[in-house]
Design a protein around this nucleic acid. Structure first.
Length: 861
RNA sequence: GCGAAAGUGGCGGAAUUGGCAGACGCACCAGACUUAGGAUCUGGCGGGUAAAACCGUGGGGGUUCGAGUCCCCCCUUUCGCACCA
């Protein structure tokens, strides 16, 4: 059935007077209008090359172009964009760029699934996500866009790799590596989470031995640790995580002589210990099952070999399961003895499954009396336990008392320790280390947990490593002038082992840069964390085709003033970035020691108590939110729902509330309030003005300080509620008497002032609406660069304040006094209050405490 | 096991410095305007009471005139680290 539209008639009785279209907040209309304007101005968000303004570099972590933004992105970028806009309004030369971390495995998976080349898939995703960002209205300087999968970018990865190679910081080594069967590639230690692949949480990581390229991040281990001190603008949590990751421990190396009884691997066991002061209490030496000496020891002993092999597999199983910490301690005695160089004692040598080859030297001295693990082990195998440290005590009699074992703390005194007896632990460590060095059987040293960074990936979609293997010249770097080594386009991608590039002869076969003879290219590609280790430098000079960047531009923009992203990058990305910066500094490319001055880690976006994910079916699509409520409401809700460092619980009804608020703001501008054009500042007007200045202060303070955007949005809501109430002439309740007072009309000039400032205050958080309101208020300047409002402390100050009065700790009344009232005045007013009088009637007043501007507390008996 | 953060109405959260607990928003309830309302506006909204009193910030102690906030013990949740010698 079709109903013809009624012909145009002049009169339709049932029709209500139509709202003027402009009376309704139409987010889609407003956002379309401003989006068009902004996009026609390519210089709108551009950072200035030469500027007299102070610089401000605000950066959000670049996304992986998966195809669509998720709410986590929206939250991250809403915070960054609000800050950038705030800084623009405060007169800074703001650098606010965006890019794409666009190499990596998902593109290959998608290629297999959809039969689309990774490059095509990736670039299409980038276009889609860029459109989303523009729709939401994030103010990025797109002239500086960085796309890591393009040769214009990754050629500099290769260039840096050559520099690292020249500096001896890139090297090749055969090693056992973490292998994810699902990814069919090697993973860095950082990408193994509890024995599982970081990307496939149900896939157990295996160990494989392969020739790999490594970057010598350990060269900077000490500095990376030390400079954490400088990063006061970073969350404590992140600094601690990095500190643990680097895992520095100062200790001593001590050689235990095997008396020439062991084969080619040597006849000395070097142990690492942080407690050399306990060495006189050592009752055995423990080797990791994979220690090189173990091979020699078990060579002619099949029984022992079987036992050790069992230890190795126990350890491997535990490692793969990720619970090496809970392994049941096992060990076998090798039948050998090693000499403690301090006292000449021969100690039995054991092999134990809880000793790790990749920490320290893979060998320890076992001191059961003063170490938890050694105590457990010695108890199990009946090894002797000898006390050599007694608790220090101010009472000399107590010093002789045997402590409960194991006694592991450092506040003790050495006993039974030869010439070192009587020393405190700390001085003993120092003295005994020096002694070892002097006698040439050891020295003080530092062990680190951090390992060199393995960057080889047997994958296609990444930066080719610019190295060539020649039969005559061996490993040869590609000449700088021949960069970039282009990643070929038409490649059959599979996920079965080995790099797909092996099957591309025109890539694989090349000539040796040295001799010109036939050679093969390296077919592994770089870990994508290489891309993200320095991308933010490229933003400073994104078009440069002669160098990764011009150092002068880096000197201007760096360090990054504010970096914003998820805490999941606390270790990997952020430690590699710091390493890369230090390397670039040492090669003279940059002058800053650290890339990032301030770091902010925002919380996750969750829904129904769980992280948004497809498997939970609780994913909220930003596109849908923007279509339904508008970009302003979407981003503003992401700022309003919780403080940015906490997790955000997405509630659809919450965003509706924000939408309603924006609608009220809009109507505040369209409503004709019938305000007197010139009127004296009535009491009510004065109160509104005070509220306005208080609001400016609150919002400004939040931007300057703790970034609790939820409370500064609340403040703006309060201002609007207050203004509306007064303008509508709703009755005002007197704060004390409760008597209703007719609200006064607000003069036109104050209405205009409130409107103007609401537009300004909203500009960082709801830019589309703010710009529209700014224009509606008759302003012609660009709101993006309009000066941020200043509050007047005098106008913000209350002239009357409410003072609660407590009697014996319970609230009994509230009195109003002028803000500058002295103690006596406040006290007298409080004591004159009827309710207070009633509460203290018939009792004896013991004490009256007056806290000016705060409260009165009366104690009665 | 070690370390960190957190625990406040039906919900998200506020209280920034020891000083009126619950701002702001959601949900809900009532009313207004309406043929209608998933629009808008007004009012209410921790428990309790007729109204008060009184009780309320995970639990138990403490300091203080006064504690969500400080101290001690415990519980729960989240995150990080975990035979690192």
């Amino acid at each position: 059935m079709t109903t013809a539209r009624p012909a145009h008639t002049d009169e339709r009785s049932d029709e209500r007077p139509e709202e003027r279209p402009d009376d309704r907040y139409d987010a889609q209309r407003i956002e379309r209008k401003w989006s068009e304007r902004w996009q026609s101005d390519s210089l709108l968000y551009a950072a200035e090359e030469r500027s007299t303004k102070p610089k401000y570099y605000v950066l959000e972590m670049l996304p992986y172009p998966s195809g669509a933004l998720h709410m986590g992105h929206v939250r991250n970028y809403s915070i960054g964009d609000a800050l950038a806009r705030y800084m623009w309004m405060n007169g800074y030369n703001v650098l606010h760029p965006m890019g794409w971390d666009s190499f990596g495995l998902p593109a290959e998976n998608a290629a297999i699934k959809n039969n689309t080349p990774p490059r095509e898939w990736t670039l299409r995703n980038i276009a889609a996500m860029k459109a989303q960002m523009k729709r939401i209205g994030f103010g990025y300087d797109w002239s500086r866009e960085v796309t890591t999968c393009l040769p214009e970018y990754y050629r500099w990865n290769q260039w840096f790799f050559l520099k690292l190679y020249e500096a001896g910081l890139a090297y090749r080594k055969k090693s056992k590596l973490n292998w994810c069967p699902e990814c069919a590639t090697v993973l860095a230690n950082e990408q193994v989470v509890g024995g599982m692949c970081w990307r496939h949480e149900n896939t157990r990581v295996e160990q494989r031995e392969l020739e790999q390229w490594f970057l010598r991040i350990t060269k900077y281990a000490d500095e990376l640790l030390r400079d954490l001190e400088k990063l006061q603008g970073w969350p404590e949590k992140v600094r601690v995580m990095q500190q643990n990751w680097i895992g520095r421990s100062a200790g001593t190396l001590v050689d235990f002589d095997l008396g020439g009884t062991v084969g080619p691997a040597g006849s000395t066991i070097t142990v690492f210990t942080t407690r050399v002061d306990t060495i006189y209490g050592a009752t055995s030496v423990q080797l990791a099952p994979e220690h090189p000496l173990v091979g020699d020891i078990i060579a002619r002993n099949p029984t022992l070999r079987t036992q050790v092999e069992e230890l190795i597999s126990e350890q491997r199983r535990a490692k793969e399961a990720g619970d090496i910490g809970n392994i049941e301690k096992h060990g076998v005695f090798t039948g050998r003895y090693a000499k403690n160089p301090y006292n000449g004692e021969a100690l039995p040598v054991w092999v134990a499954n809880y000793i790790l080859m990749d920490y320290g030297t893979g060998a320890i001295m076992s001191v059961p009396a003063h170490d938890e693990r050694d105590f457990e082990f010695a108890t199990k195998y009946n090894l002797p336990i000898r006390v050599v440290i007694l608790p220090a005590s101010s009472d000399p009699e107590e010093t002789t008392a045997e402590p409960p074992l194991p006694f592991t703390t450092m506040d003790g005194i050495l006993v039974n320790s030869g010439e070192f007896s009587g020393l405190g632990c700390a001085e003993a460590i120092e003295g005994m280390s020096a002694y070892a060095a002097e006698k040439n059987f050891g020295k003080a040293t530092v062990a680190f947990r951090i390992k060199d960074w393995g960057i080889s990936r047997q994958r296609y979609w990444g930066t080719p490593i610019p190295m060539v293997y020649c039969e005559r010249d061996g490993v040869v770097p590609v000449a700088e002038k021949d960069l970039p080594v282009i990643l070929p386009d038409q490649v059959k991608v599979t996920l079965s082992g080995g790099s797909p590039l092996l099957n591309v002869p025109e890539f694989l076969n090349t000539t040796c840069p040295k001799c010109g003879g036939p050679a093969r290219r390296e077919t592994d590609t770089m870990d994508t964390f290489v891309d993200s280790s320095w991308y933010f430098y490229r933003y400073a000079d994104a078009q440069n085709d002669k160098a990764p960047f011009d150092s002068a531009k880096i000197a201007y923009w760096f360090p990054i003033d504010q970096y914003i992203g998820g805490v999941e990058h606390a270790i990997l990305h952020l430690i590699y970035s710091r390493f890369w910066t230090k390397f670039m500094r040492d090669m003279g490319q940059v002058t800053n020691d650290e890339p990032i001055a301030r770091l902010f880690t925002q919380g996750m976006v969750i829904k129904d108590g769980a992280k948004m994910s497809k498997s939970f079916g609780n994913v909220v699509s930003p596109d849908e939110m923007v279509a339904r409520y508008g970009a302003d409401a979407t981003r503003m809700y992401s700022l309003f729902a919780s403080p940015p460092d906490r997790d955000l619980d997405w509630q659809e009804s919450g965003i509706e509330g924000i939408q309603r608020f924006l609608g009220r703001v809009y109507r505040f501008f369209t409503t004709n309030w019938d305000a007197p054009s010139s009127a004296p500042m009535t009491d009510s007007a004065r109160r509104l003005q005070r509220k306005l200045h208080q609001t400016i202060k609150r919002v400004t303070d939040d931007f300057q300080g703790r970034w609790h955007f939820n409370t500064c949005i609340s403040a703006i809501m309060e201002l609007l509620n207050d203004a509306n109430r007064r303008m509508l002439g709703t009755d005002d309740a007197h704060p004390v008497t409760g008597a209703l007072v007719k609200a006064d009309k607000i003069p036109q000039s104050l209405v205009a002032e409130v409107r103007r400032n609401i537009a300004l205050l909203l500009a960082p958080m709801a830019p589309y609406l703010a710009h529209e309101l700014w224009e509606m208020a008759g302003e012609t300047s660009n709101l993006l660069k309009a000066p941020w409002p200043k509050y007047d402390a005098a106008l913000a100050a209350e002239d009357e304040i409410e003072i609660p009065v407590q009697v014996n700790g319970k609230l009994r009344g509230v009195v109003v006094v002028s803000a500058d009232a002295g103690e006596d005045k406040i006290k007298n007013t409080a004591l004159a209050d009827e309710k207070v009088k009633a509460a203290i009637a018939g009792k004896q007043m013991a004490k009256v405490i007056v806290v000016p501007k705060k409260l009165v507390s009366i104690v009665v008996r």
